[in-house]
């Protein structure tokens, strides 16, 4: 009799054991399934992420390139409306980069200034042709209209939230201010004039004086340097004049490599 009881108990144990094993197997299979599904999902997500990341990078570059192109084109428009010709804005760009670099601005700022400074004369697009193209000297009225190009350039660019265009608006606004406060449009003096304005002022004048125009010969280096020394602390930031002479060779290399043809 006891054997039969034992057999019953064993049968029941066996049944429970099989049930438990079945359940465990089912759970394991399910977990494996969840894991597989999850791995698959993760792989797709990561692929997608990589793809998006590349897309973002491409778009970022596209935006930067577009911005550079817009800025460069605006500079060219400004140039087409000014009496400066040839590689003037390109040389100004390089000079401003060097001055900014030697002045101690960050690489990023130097690079931005190089792109923004060619727009310094953009306001000239709004100056009437009759004045802009006048062959002789300006009378007082004409001169004051001519001088509005700084304000006009600023007004064109000031609403932009783009850092590069903001910088360009400052450059356009302040590149005719003089260190001693006798410039225009706001007679700012010393470091009231933004460093971008002070740098572009020097770069612009250096290039304009050294270039021949229909109405004038190119100045000799001797004459330019003499004038720069005289205008140290008057027209120009003395620190920038010092930097200019300390690194004169680098400026002359740029001038020689980007001559007007």
């Amino acid at each position: 009799m006891s054997d039969i009881k034992l057999i019953d108990e064993l049968d029941s144990l066996k049944e429970n054991f099989i049930k438990t094993i079945d359940k465990l197997t089912k759970d394991l299979k399910r977990n494996q399934k969840i894991m597989d599904r999850s791995d698959k999902q993760q792989r797709r997500e990561y692929d997608e992420l990589q793809k998006k990341f590349i897309e973002v990078e491409t778009l970022k570059k596209e935006i930067e390139d577009t911005q550079k192109e817009v800025v460069f084109t605006m500079g060219a428009i400004g140039e087409s409306r000014s009496k400066e010709t040839g590689n003037h804005v390109k040389r100004v760009a390089e000079y401003t980069y060097l001055l900014a670099k030697y002045y101690g601005l960050s690489e990023k700022e130097c690079e931005m200034l190089k792109q923004a400074s060619p727009m310094h004369d953009i306001g000239k697009v709004a100056i009437p042709d009759a004045i802009l193209n006048k062959p002789g000297r300006f009378d007082a009225d004409e001169r004051s209209i001519m001088e509005t190009h700084a304000q006009l350039g600023y007004d064109m660019l000031k609403y932009s939230n783009r850092s590069l265009l903001k910088m360009a608006s400052t450059v356009a606004y302040e590149h005719h201010e003089k260190y001693n406060g006798t410039g225009y449009p706001n007679q700012l003096a010393g470091e009231e004039i933004h460093i971008y304005g002070r740098i572009t002022a020097l770069a612009d004048v250096f290039d304009a004086l050294g270039s021949a125009r229909v109405y004038k010969e190119a100045w000799s280096d001797e004459r330019i340097f003499k004038m720069f020394k005289e205008e140290r602390g008057k027209h120009f930031d003395p620190k920038l004049i010092d930097i200019f002479f300390e690194n004169l060779d680098s400026f002359l290399v740029i001038r020689d490599s980007m001559k007007d043809v």
């Binding site: 399910r30 894991m35 599904r37 999850s38």
Partner: peptide, 10 residues
């Protein structure tokens, strides 16, 4: 669904 949510649905 993250994997533990998937488990919850199972």
């Amino acid at each position: 669904l993250n994997s533990s949510s998937l488990k919850a649905y199972f």
